[in-house]
Amino acid sequence: MTNHIIQLDDVSFSYDHSIVLDHIHLEVGEGEFWALIGPNGSGKSTLINIILGLLKPSSGSVELFGSDINSFKHRERIGYVSQKSNSFNSGFPATVLEVVRSGLTRKSGLFRSFSKKDEQKALKSLGIVGMESFARQNIGELSGGQQQRVFIARALVGEPDLLIMDEPTVGIDQQNVASFYSMLNELNRDHGIAIVLVTHEIDLVTDLATHVACLNRSIHFHGIQSDYKKMDDEDISNWYGHPVRRVHQFETEVDQ
């Protein structure tokens, strides 16, 4: 048996009466980079919240790193960027450095204070997203895209084995999106970090991801990237419920 980092077994979820997730099976293995795609309201964020234990599934089971989510102890192994990270109280008195360092809370241990080393780790992580010069600034005084980069740094600071990101690039400019994705690629390829990325940028990301899952209440496709690329646009449009046309970057380059 291969070691699964995430294993969802027959997971269903409903808010009050409407079923949002319907019998989901999904396995994420070591070193895999999954793109989770689907239209608005298809249940992507809900699924992420279930994987993280923020929501309890109505039925089915969730395992992280081989242990049941309810008894899973090593939360420092997960880095997380939520879809609404920057909906925090913008008057909050905290510097960028303090926010990023808070990603080490669990790793530093209970009852312990942060050390000088923790601060250096936070600065290094800020360097990765190109924000180290903002370290001493108030987080509320940054632009939305800059804040988002800070939250990415917070997810990376603990050197996680699994990165879960819900539309992390929303509000980030094109150049920084490109460098963010190449950073993800590097983390995945060179450091073997498993990644689950929720995104609407399907063309960009399916070239990077090793695996793709299409969600719309239930999983309509999941498998390796090359199989996903062989699918018809028409099939994907059916799952989305509206026409989708994928642009394959390599093909367009050849065309030119």
Partner: peptide
Amino acid sequence: RFLYKELFVLSFDPDYAKVSGV
């Protein structure tokens, strides 16, 4: 003094605190 880190995350971002095992 002893729960400063935890109190900070909990104040700044309660969901994140939960995810990170606080």
